[in-house]
Structure formats: structure tokens, C-alpha cells
Amino acid sequence: MDLEEQQTLPHSPFAQPIRCIVKLGGAAITCKNELEMINDEILHKVAEQLRQAMISSSQKPPGMDWSKRHGASEICCNPDEFKDHSVIDCSPFIVVHGAEGIPSIGMSPFSCGWFTKEKHISSGDLSSVAKAIESGFTPVLHGDAVFDDIQGCSILSGDVIISHLAAYSKPKYVVFMTDVYGVYDRPPTEPDAMLLKEIAVAEDGSWSVINPKLQNSVELTVAAHDTTGGMETKISEAAMIAKLGIDVYIVKAATSHSLRALSGVLRSGIPNDWLGTVVRSSR
């Protein structure tokens, strides 16, 4: 996001700091080889990890089940638990999911807004997100097909939404959850694929691999069914966020590594046994 674009953006309505923006990748929470099929096991575990990261372990978390599933739920929702927010130590999170084709998990009343080809976010949409957070809720957003001044209509990915939200809300860190352990130097299905542990972003937005030291260039591919650019778009948007001084973690969903990323413990240092990719400013 250059200076000219920043000057056209509306004033940020976020009154309190956001701890984390989370992207639940479509490849992680859906079965890509089946039409409109949720991966229930992964989604359930990701929800548990989000709940654990958002609410202090010393507090009893409130029940929040708005899934509207048929039959009795193991999680109850008691509105009285939300009357006194002071008894719940809940860190503000924003969640963006990448399963746009499955309306059953479009859990948020917030639209992605009216975007032009420059993908500007209207102040009304930002205010809706900010008000939800102030009221003790966690906004859940998703990408969608939007109007475009040039193409008429185009796909606005959740990754792009996150980079703009990060510019406004200045979260402490951002987590991209996907179906692989992070960014690789080539398609991860290849036998010699190497996980890139750390990527540094320069002030001009260019990026380079710091760990490990590579002999060859990085080969980024996009799956034929991925309309949002795949890993290449993730790296590009992660680099835009890292330029703001915000660390970005790309990690496999529903693993111990994703829980460590969500909890924020990686901000003090990346341990050798952590599997994932951190994208951060070279400054």
C-alpha cells in the first residue's frame, strides 16, 4: 500500500488495539476435491484453538454456539454471560475465512463492502467491524465477488481484505492458516520441497528468504481451481502487512504449530521446532 493509496483511505474507527487477524484458508477448512464440503474435523479443531488463544486460560470462556445446527449442541449459549464484559479477559481478534462458496460458514452479518478496482474499503464497513469488537464479538468476514470498474466483476480474496484491515487496525500479528506447513521453495508435493522458515520484506515491498539459505529461486504455483492467486497472493499480501511492522505467520491449520502462532508466543522468537513461515520486516 503506497503513500498515495493510504491518503485516500478513510480514518480508522478502531478505538482499541487488535491482537490478531486470522485467515482460515479455504484449502484448510474445506475438502477441495468435493463440491461445497466442509472439513468438519479441521474446522472444529481450529475453532477450539481460536477460543483458547482469544480467552485467558484462567477464565471460564462463555458459550458461543451460533451454528444453527439441528439437534442439541454440546456448547450452550447463555446471554447472561455477556452482560459483564469485565469478567472475561478476551483479546480482540478478527477472523477471515476463505470458503466463500459455502454459505453455511458465512457466520458474519458484515459484508466485505463496496470495493473498486483499487479495493478501497468504505468507512461504514470498518465501523461495523469496530463496533462488533467493542461489543465483545469477533467479526467473521470472507472474500466474495465484487464490482470492478474495469472487469465489471472480480474476485476479492480474503487475503486482500486482511492486508487492508491490518493497515487500519494495526494488529500485533497476523496468522494465515493453510493446508500445508507454510511456504515452500517449490510445490510441497515434490519430494525435495523445502520449507521456508523466514522471509524478510524490504521497505520497497520486495522480499527475500532469510532461513534457510537457498541455492535456487522459489517456484510459486497456483492451483487451477484457486481463483484468488494461491500462495503467491498470500506472500504478496503478507509482505504488504510486514512492511507495516506486523509479523505474519503462515502455518498449517489445526496443529500445535498453529496454536503457538495464534497464542502470540512466537513474537518473542521463532523456536527451531516450530513448523511454519514467518514473514516480517527486514527493519
Rank of each mutant, 00 (worst) to 15 (best):
G113Q: 15
G113H: 15
G113E: 00
F115E: 02
T116N: 15
K117M: 03
E118H: 14
H120P: 01
H120A: 03
H120Y: 04
H120C: 00
I121S: 08
L126I: 00
L126C: 05
S127C: 09
S128E: 05
K131E: 00
I133C: 13
E134F: 05
G136P: 02
G136M: 01
F137W: 12
F137K: 14
T138I: 11
T138S: 00
V140G: 03
L141K: 09
G143R: 09
V146L: 08
V146D: 04
F147K: 04
D148R: 00
D148T: 03
D149S: 12
D149L: 06
D149P: 01
Q151M: 05
Q151A: 07
G152V: 05
G152W: 10
G152Y: 06
G152E: 06
C153R: 09
C153K: 09
C153P: 01
C153S: 09
S154R: 00
S154T: 15
S154N: 12
S154H: 00
I155W: 12
S157P: 06
D159Q: 04
D159C: 04
I161Q: 00
S163D: 11
S163I: 12
S163G: 15
L165C: 13
L165Y: 15
L165E: 14
A166K: 06
A167Q: 13
A167F: 14
S169G: 12
P171W: 13
K172H: 14
K172A: 08
F176Q: 01
M177H: 14
D179M: 05
D179G: 09
Y181K: 12
G182Y: 04
G182S: 09
Y184H: 11
D185V: 03
R186F: 01
T189P: 03
E190F: 10
P191E: 10
D192Q: 14
A193Y: 04
L195T: 13
L196V: 10
E198H: 13
E198F: 07
E198M: 12
I199N: 14
V201A: 09
D204W: 15
D204T: 10
G205A: 13
W207P: 07
W207G: 04
